[in-house]
Design a protein around this nucleic acid. Structure first.
Length: 598
RNA sequence: GGCCCCGUAGUUCAAUGGAUAGAAUAGGACUUUCCUAAAGUUUAGAUGCAGGUUCGAUUCCUGCCGGGGCUACCA
């Protein structure tokens, strides 16, 4: 929806009112881009107005078209094709639209900061026993991008994650490290902390299975063997000591967690994502427990005879859900209630929370939001589960047991080296000072990866083929970067310091290709709004591609610097500036850095 | 069994109920004395099946077929 479309919608409503005595419903007025094979810029679908006119679509279009040309200065001409009214918009209007957008410079497309409600976006929230993998990359890029998009749309955004730092799984790594670790540390081995701890988690599993097999071979059944394996008992013992606050256990726990956090931190830094605040499960699960007990006292929850506590959601079409075990220990939901409410207390003006979590947890979040609602939080109805699909490999889901997990650090490294290799093969390195090369490889390699993961509708599961690697040509991040670089190069060669000096005279006539390019670039503000409303970065990614594709086609046969008509030259430089700015802003919202040379 | 999501060119992705369903890639044919060829031009190729709603359906409704997920006192 462009500005011109809102103007046209009003004019069309006027036309109907004057011609037929009543206005159509706003949503019946549909304005879209005119298909390139027809003359005109914007197209109004006239079918909905035939009810008002009582005439054929052609005749109705004819009458509205004539009215518009006569009464709206922006419209110079019209044509009817079937039930479609194709309108030609004046050169004057396009020149002004171009000038207005260029004058906004880097603010084009953005709304005033913090002009809309405060939103919290949670993303990442990994398990501290496993290094980050491809699925986390989608999660992180998505959460980061949605945060940036919400900011661009005017929201005050707080980026957070919940760190799952407590429970039996952590104790397993701790046991294994105590048994087999020989006091290794990330410093002593030179290994990333998350990888080191992940290795001991695997070591636990291996030792556990071995013990289970041994017990079974002595004649016991599998069930018994699984619950009696000494290493598991040792892990449980650690958990009890942890909960009792045993200082030795707590020290080891915080030491090993520190290793993991440091490892994650370096990966986050590499990915270019960040957080404003971190929440730890070890801090929130007790809050959750007390809130559940309070809810019980307030009559929101119910207690069974075995003393377990439940919430009954059958009134909203869901089931009963356990909130506290009969032994009084917390479940996942307990902690999430505690975390959510703690956040509302931490940020009193928080309008809603957005949870970036895989789609297998849709039910969980439905339940969580219902519970928050029952507890009297009006924000609950605006909370949103940003539910995304899995990243699948050609052979199916990633499975750590089968060793098909695509490690995040490995993939980032691979993207960097592929970018380096391609740059060198294409002979691009002469333009790039050696000191800037690594930085460029990151921009291009990570740009390819982020764009690849974000251009797909988040809700859909997507395919990644490790053997095929991610492209750098075609509909890719580097394609967009490359055209940005060319556009920037033109502006540099033209010696344009301040783009707001590029004022296109109102008499300049832009051809079809140019007007289409302009219209595409001008849709950035609306697309950002839509993307914010639907929590969908793919809309922004697709627009960046559309602009780039149009730009690249146009660039091919429209000289800019060599254009002799000085007014037209200014208009083209302005277009060049607007497109490069729109692309840079859009890609920035995806977390993709744009190089100035490549 | 119940509930939810998804089926579009060989492949990976698009398409507020609108015109002849768009791209990319892989295949065929081309373009470089010209602002960065990681580019551009051109050719060929798809809505799972069957109904319904209406001026018009990839989109909305029903059934079927196929794929995935959820349905734990796991996280």
């Amino acid at each position: 929806m462009l500005k011109i479309d809102s103007i046209l919608a009003l004019s069309v409503a006027d036309a109907c009112n004057n011609l037929y005595g009543s206005k159509p419903e706003p949503k019946q007025i549909s304005v879209q881009s005119t298909r390139s094979e027809f003359e005109g810029d914007r197209t109004v679908v006239v079918f909905p107005f035939t009810r008002l006119s009582g005439k054929s679509p052609e005749l109705t279009g004819e009458q509205i078209g004539m009215y518009l040309v006569k009464n709206d200065d922006n419209i110079t001409n019209f044509q009817i094709v079937k039930g479609f009214l194709n309108l030609s918009v004046s050169d004057n209007y396009w020149a002004k639209a171009l000038n207005d957008a260029v004058a906004e410079k880097e603010c084009f497309g953005l709304q005033a900061a913090k002009s809309k409600p405060q939103v919290m976006v949670e993303y990442s929230s990994p398990n501290t026993n496993k290094p980050l993998h491809l699925g986390h990359l989608r999660n992180n890029f998505l959460g980061y991008s949605v945060s940036e998009i919400l900011k661009a749309a005017g929201h005050d955004v707080i980026k957070v994650q919940i760190i799952n730092d407590r429970g039996i799984h952590i104790c397993k790594s701790m046991v294994a490290w105590k048994l087999f670790g020989n006091n290794e540390t990330p410093t002593s081995t030179g290994e990333k902390g998350d990888k080191l701890v992940g290795r001991y988690y695997v070591a636990f599993d291996k030792a556990y299975k071995k013990e289970v097999a041994e017990i079974i071979s002595t004649g016991k059944d599998e069930e018994t063997a699984k619950s009696e394996a000494p290493i598991l008992l040792a892990a449980r013992d650690l958990l009890h000591k942890w909960e009792a606050g045993d200082s030795e256990v707590r020290t080891l726990w915080s030491t090993m967690n520190r290793w993991v956090y440091d490892g994650f931190e370096s990966t986050y830094k590499e990915m270019g994502v960040d957080f404003d605040k971190l929440y730890y499960e070890s801090d929130t699960y007790l809050i959750g427990k007390s809130l559940v007990k309070k809810g019980l006292a307030d009559g929101v929850f119910t207690q069974r005879e075995d003393s377990s506590i439940w919430v009954d959601l059958s009134d909203v079409g869901l089931d009963e859900k356990l909130l506290l075990r009969k032994d009084g220990t917390a479940v996942y939901m307990t902690q999430d209630i505690g975390t959510a409410i703690l956040r509302f207390e931490d940020y009193p003006s928080l309008d809603r929370q957005v949870y970036t979590v895989g789609n297998e947890q849709e039910y969980h979040f439905k339940v969580l939001f219902e519970i928050l609602s029952k507890l009297g939080f009006p924000q609950a109805s605006r909370c949103h589960h940003l539910s995304y699909g899995m990243v699948e490999l050609p052979e199916g889901k990633m499975k750590s047991r089968e060793g098909t997990v695509v490690d995040a650090d490995d993939l980032l490294l691979e993207m960097r080296t592929s970018a380096a290799q391609l740059a060198s093969e294409a002979g691009k390195l002469d333009n790039i000072p050696p000191s800037e090369r690594d930085n460029l490889y990151k921009k291009v390699g990570y740009g390819a990866l982020k764009y690849f993961l974000l251009k797909v509708d988040p809700r859909k599961s997507m395919m990644f083929d490790p053997a095929g690697s991610i492209d750098f040509i075609g509909n890719t991040g580097p394609y967009i970067q490359f055209n940005y670089v060319r556009a920037r190069s033109v502006l540099r060669n033209a010696g344009i310091e301040d783009v707001s000096t590029l004022v296109t005279p109102s008499t300049v006539h832009l051809d079809n290709t140019e007007r289409n390019l302009l219209m595409t670039a001008l849709s950035l503000p609306t697309i950002i709004e839509e993307a914010a409303r639907s929590y969908d970065p793919s809309l922004v990614a697709n627009l960046c591609y559309d602009i780039t594709k149009s730009y690249s086609r146009w660039y091919q046969d429209h000289p800019i610097l060599k254009e002799e008509d000085s007014d037209l030259r200014i208009a083209r430089l302005a277009l060049c500036s607007l497109c490069s700015q729109a692309i840079k802003t859009g890609m920035g919202l995806l977390g993709v850095d744009m190089p100035e040379n490549m």
